[in-house]
Design a binder for these strands. Structure first.
Lengths: 118, 118
DNA sequence: GCTTGACTTAGAGTAAGCTCTAATCAGTAT
DNA sequence: ATACTGATTAGAGCTTACTCTAAGTCAAGC
């Protein structure tokens, strides 16, 4: 069981952000007798997953949706599968865009180099 | 020479956005006798480049910087080169992140599939 | 001459995702 | 007892990148 401060430190996000995610129902930690948030290992695993999704530009709204499907239980498995497949598709599109621009920049940089002779 | 409406249509962005980019000094079109904006082919080429950079999450502030270096002339070539090289580096990092998450999702999806037998 | 439609401006409003403030409380150290 | 630390809340504020509004100008067609 971890406090909000520990989790923030561990994951490299702020306690503010963790409270914001809770307000958005992305993560629902337990509470101790003083009403302080308590995060279990599985909460942390989930948050690490959320952070990975965020790094690939999944919007908070979609992460919220996935989280709520998860809480709804077994019968949402297919929906979750579809959501992940769609996101995978968008990741692949983005990789293609990035590769294209990377190549364009490589050319542009090469041209700059020949002009300044570096 | 093209009007703001034509350019908006051609590039798939709004006239509002083009005016916003001008307010930010990202693009400075000419003006006709009535004071209307006029975009040349080279303006359009520049805008297409800007859109490509945007698709790779380059912030407006950085695009602005690149544009202002360009307007300053020849002696900023090295700075522009550095800026593009840094951005290329960030693109490559992002590609790695995307590939990593893509792989993770592939596993997760495969696991879901075996559970529901699809 | 009047309407239509595309343009002009300054500035207000919006959505996403935090980020911070103020006031408060609980537990520990001196 | 009191000060410090780290937690709590509701709600305000911030940044980015647009997006829209209001009020107005101007040229072309009927």
């Amino acid at each position: 069981m971890h406090t909000i401060g520990e989790v923030a430190e561990l994951l490299g996000i702020s306690a503010h952000t963790l409270r914001y995610y809770e307000k958005e129902h992305i993560i629902m930690p337990l509470r101790d007798t003083s009403g302080d948030r308590r995060y279990t290992e599985s909460h942390i695993k989930w948050l690490q997953f959320v952070i990975k999704l965020k790094e690939t530009q999944m919007p908070i709204a979609t992460i919220k949706k996935y989280a709520s499907l998860f809480l709804e239980g077994e019968h949402t498995t297919l929906d979750r599968l579809n959501l992940l497949e769609e996101h995978r598709c968008s990741i692949q599109k983005q990789i293609q865009i990035l590769n294209g621009v990377d190549e364009m920049l490589a050319h542009k940089i090469a041209t700059y180099r020949t002009f300044i002779g570096k």
